[in-house]
Design a protein around this nucleic acid. Structure first.
Lengths: 202, 202
DNA sequence: GTCTATATAGCGATAGAC
DNA sequence: GTCTATCGCTATATAGAC
């Protein structure tokens, strides 16, 4: 229904469509409860045809993770244009708050995926989501360092941990207020931080 | 769970053994990746015999959740014997820290279960884990109220959210240091709180 | 390149022997 | 009450027609 041109060039369209569909469905239903038919249906692609683009279901999981990583990179890239690193961090929190309805319904896309993948045996994508989280931690750490904070990595962990915690709780309890309240608390915490100080008790 | 009269046989309480085995295996492997054979094997019970004690797999999931709730109740019950509510809350955080190796390997038992169950459709235990979390929030809220804090529920959410966040991150990154560092931060935060104050950033 | 039909395997659940 | 054997379903993955 989208394109009038069915296969552009090499059919990379369907591959991308499948990846986007996978990102959405896997987030909503979880990896284990999602069938290839679910993803194929969401992407408007015949079930058996999926294997022409992705050799296994795990390849689709990887593609979904890459989608989430790309979204995150786009967001941090936009925030990088802000002059003040503190404003960048606050912009990140505000982005989380603006997406709170998604978090309430399905949790953080990367966080819930990490929980699910961690239950797998070693060497089967069990640490794949960790890479995305680490990328976010690295970015936040850079901002705290630019602000002259003494323990930038620790502050980054506190920030991302705060987001993961509030997303999990809001999702489990189906309570949007947790997102707004805890989000406001994180913003206040960012404002309260002063350069070089050791204050991390927020 | 229901009756103590039902499975009080002389061959050992298999029902309880199955529930305990379910709590452990479901935590480590996740609900969807755990088969009844896994649980039966862990409990040293023949596979087909499981259905004599639990009618469905979901009944075993409920029993596992009840085990986690019981452990939590036992912990808070012990902490209730402390005179100072602040010491009770700090005791809770210290208990979390002492269990950090488990959290690093498999995450918070209730939290990861909540994430997994939330992916289900409505009416299929999708909110079962939320009840256990709510119980913990209620207990923490009582302690903050006893301390004379102005927003006891909000503080309880911040505390439990902090635990869930640090467990998720430590688990995803397989990093025990996150548990000790963030745990220490929570202890410092509890110490910094002063009665009736609105300070939640600090 | 695209899609249909099907092979194969594994799991939850049941029937029924003892 | 305890356990074995097995059914029926579903989902991943493949073979091969168009």
């Amino acid at each position: 229904m989208t394109d009038s041109t069915k296969s552009r060039g090499r059919g990379g369209d369907k591959r991308r469509k499948l990846a986007a569909a996978a990102a959405g469905v896997l987030h909503r239903q979880g990896v284990e409860r999602t069938t290839l038919a679910d993803i194929a249906h969401e992407a408007d692609v015949p079930v058996g045809n999926v294997y022409y683009y992705f050799k296994t279901k795990d390849a689709l999981v990887e593609a979904a993770l890459a989608e989430h990583a790309a979204h995150l990179a786009e967001l941090t890239g936009r925030l990088d244009r802000l002059a003040d690193p503190r404003d960048r961090l606050k912009g990140l929190v505000e982005a989380w708050i603006s997406q709170s309805d998604v978090a309430v319904h399905y949790g953080c896309p990367t966080g819930t995926l990490a929980v699910e993948l961690d239950k797998r045996e070693e060497g089967t994508l069990d640490l794949a989501a960790a890479e995305v989280i680490r990328g976010l931690l690295d970015w936040a750490e850079s901002q705290f360092r630019a602000l002259g904070m003494s323990d930038p990595r620790g502050l980054a962990v506190t920030l991302v941990s705060g987001y993961q915690g509030m997303s999990l709780l809001a999702n489990a309890l189906r309570d949007p207020k947790i997102m707004t309240d805890e989000g406001a608390r994180l913003l206040g915490w960012l404002d309260s931080l002063t350069s070089g100080e050791d204050q991390r008790d927020g």
